[in-house]
Design a protein around this nucleic acid. Structure first.
Lengths: 220, 220
DNA sequence: ATCTGTGAAGCACTTCACAGCG
DNA sequence: CGCTGTGAAGTGCTTCACAGAT
């Protein structure tokens, strides 16, 4: 059975909420309560989970730790993931020093740049290599995911090279839309694009405009 | 007429692509070509634009500069937007030094934190105030958008205070889902959540799994 | 001849509503 | 008796296909 992409996109939110519940010591949660925490209908949550199996107990709800474990396994978070960063400017350094990746099993194991000021320097115990060594490095020590933090003009070429080097997932911080072959995953991190989707609703001066229709998945 | 949220979410992508075309000196673009640049069908683009008016010339296409201007106006980007940052740790400082906001009309005009090490210090010519001064500061110099870069445990309270202070849009960098009253816009920036939506497709070991169904809007 | 704008059809996701189980 | 799991119904977005403009 083929699972809607939008369902996969919600699973990490479920996992995040379940982690918070687990940390509070909650052992059981109903689709009702989980839905309230996430602004998602209980029916949606039950339907989503039903794509993957039966995780709940009727009359009781879901075991928090158990469901969290199941979702993590579904998402492939029961292993470590290796990433290569390209672009070690201000943004790239912020990404390198972000402590949120490792606890979820994501590790930046290579960093590349073209700037002679940066190549050879060490950040967070990683020596920056020149981008020209990208293919060679990834051939010897492959990664699962490429993280792109270069200027938008350079991003397409970097992504092409990552893909040719076998990378099948790209986390793209550059403000542009890359072209990639089918089967290569791309996700965009672009705060300005998100801001621009909010100003539309703000501009109605104190107007009472709401988000219409289905919540388009930058859910909250 | 009420416009689907998903349509609003695509407009910034159209604007971004049009800016790139304008910079290349292109004067006219068809829905076909624009769609190819964005991985969106031409019909989708024409339908989206038709919600707001008739911007094209039959037989020719769209004037790049003209359409860009129209979209910017629709999104409310024909003015400046004031933002307040809460949380001036590593992430907050990276946000403060990000040069991508100003060119699109977004300006951080206040920065708040609770850490005595940080309060009173100056970053990018902004003096960090204590969060206890948030309400007073925003009463005197209001902002349109709140940017939240505090630890997840603190985020809900910060967002509550921003909303009570009149902020109706939140850009949330904290890895949690806040509850906000209806009419308040929230957008999430969470690289880990996006990574986790990719690992699902990666884990099928060289498997040929593709994203199914409608592209869930973290489009590329 | 080309490309837009759009009603209508198609399709995918969401919500309903209830059987069934603890 | 509460809550899950799930077919069926409902809804809204996407794509089609073509009239119409240049």
């Amino acid at each position: 059975m083929e699972i809607p992409g939008v369902v996969i996109a919600r699973l990490p939110l479920y996992a995040q909420a379940l982690e918070a519940l687990a940390q509070k010591g909650e052992e059981v949660v109903s689709s009702q309560r989980l839905g309230e925490a996430l602004g998602i209908t209980p029916a949606q949550i039950r339907k989503d989970l039903s794509y993957f199996g039966r995780f709940g107990k009727q009359g009781r709800g879901y075991n928090v730790a158990g469901l969290l474990g199941s979702i993590r396994q579904i998402l492939g978070l029961d292993r470590q993931w290796r990433m290569a960063l390209v672009g070690v400017g201000r943004l790239g350094r912020a990404i390198l020093s972000y402590e949120g990746f490792a606890p979820q099993g994501f590790h930046i194991v290579h960093a590349f740049d073209v700037d002679p000021e940066v190549v050879g320097r060490k950040f967070e115990s990683l020596v920056v290599r020149h981008v020209r060594e990208l293919e060679e490095t990834l051939a010897q020590e492959p990664v699962d995911i490429g993280v792109v933090a270069v200027p938008p003009e350079a991003a397409q070429e970097v992504i092409d090279r990552l893909v040719r080097a076998g990378v099948r997932a790209i986390l793209n911080y550059a403000p542009m839309t890359p072209r990639v072959p089918p089967g290569v995953q791309v996700r965009r991190i672009d705060p300005v694009v998100l801001l621009e989707t909010m100003t539309y609703y703000l501009k109605g001066q104190e107007g009472v405009r709401f988000l219409q229709g289905r919540d388009p998945l930058f859910l909250r």
